[in-house]
Design a protein around this nucleic acid. Sequence first.
DNA 1: CCTGTTCTCGACCGTTTGGTCAAACGGCAT
DNA 2: ATGCCGTTTGACCAAACGGTCGAGAACAGG
Lengths: 207, 207
Amino acid sequence: MEDEAPAERPLTRIQQKNRQTILAAALEVFSQHGFRGATLDQIAEVAGLSKPNLLYYFPSKEAIHVELLSTLMDTWLDPLRALDPEGDPVEEILDYVRRKLELSRDYPRESRLFANEILQGAPRVSEVLEVELKSLVDEKAAVLSHWARAGRIADLPPHHLIFSIWALTQHYADFDVQVRAVLGPGHDPYAEADGFLDTLFRKLLAP
Amino acid sequence: MEDEAPAERPLTRIQQKNRQTILAAALEVFSQHGFRGATLDQIAEVAGLSKPNLLYYFPSKEAIHVELLSTLMDTWLDPLRALDPEGDPVEEILDYVRRKLELSRDYPRESRLFANEILQGAPRVSEVLEVELKSLVDEKAAVLSHWARAGRIADLPPHHLIFSIWALTQHYADFDVQVRAVLGPGHDPYAEADGFLDTLFRKLLAP
DNA sequence: CCTGTTCTCGACCGTTTGGTCAAACGGCAT
DNA sequence: ATGCCGTTTGACCAAACGGTCGAGAACAGG
């Protein structure tokens, strides 16, 4: 028996640059049209490369999508990881809300890519949801419960409290066109949302 | 000049039944895979009809999708239309939340179909959003403002208050797999959400 | 029963899709 | 120059796609 994995060579500069270019283009196209709605030709055009060249750097369309999703999941969960059990309960939660809203504002394509995946039943990330995400949420839910029992925040079902943060912040990225259509011109949805969500969660969390 | 519209004949029973069958199958497939991800063969198979038969009842794939969306938009806005300016403010809003959550629970596929459309930039309903939806929301936002000025509910930006209702209720339908993955087995997401959202909005709306 | 209309579908068509391949290109150490 | 290796692409392929067509089956009304 010999080594199955044949000594991965380090990536050249060209490889690093082109892989990044391709992933950026793929994010643009996948987030707008979904996995099946996106075509390699589209991605290739946005990336400024030929289609066979994409497939020189990635083995398949799906591989590009998976790569995007897996790197996404990490940065997506970071704000929740940062919720500090030792900090001030209300401020910790409000910080989390703020970070989540910033993520929606600064990375709306990532948010929509994720939303697309979940909408279709999460065929490629259901494992991550059931294991990594669940255990992280359970851990932080325990913190919230602890704070509630100590009377430092209102007594609310912790999982649903977290869902409400996800729903309220991601809504501004995922339903961007609807939000802007309803508000009309001359509004900054994210600036307004920032104040609104601050008020909302302060009132909600008050014991 | 003669009549452009050539005397629409009434639909036969077979036409009514088959059109309904097709729309039901299309809803199933479109809501799961999105417009471009869905294929006529899939819809035909779910409907138990042949592909040419679908195109006997609808001129194209897009026509089926448009039909679904337009009938959807009506039922989707009904709960908001029903918000009564003469009723008790908090109870009216809580009724709206409840109706919206019921819609998510009983018609999750419709919710996901709509979410899919908005995610892709609402190419087929942007007009409806900017005109019908906007004017309806503006009208009801005025009611909320009035209630706030009268000190009957908390003073909150009315548009964002409505957004928060949409976000919180639709989240349970659109992100169903994520909610269930995080909660684990043995939970009834909608039952729990019902109580949680009741608490949330009562605290939020208290002046 | 016959006759005209409605309905159904196998076979087919042109296009688009994800993916392959061999040939060519480019920089660079010898 | 030469040979080498990472890179790039035009040409191509099989499968899947939305949609068409014509011929036959089912259903009316008389």
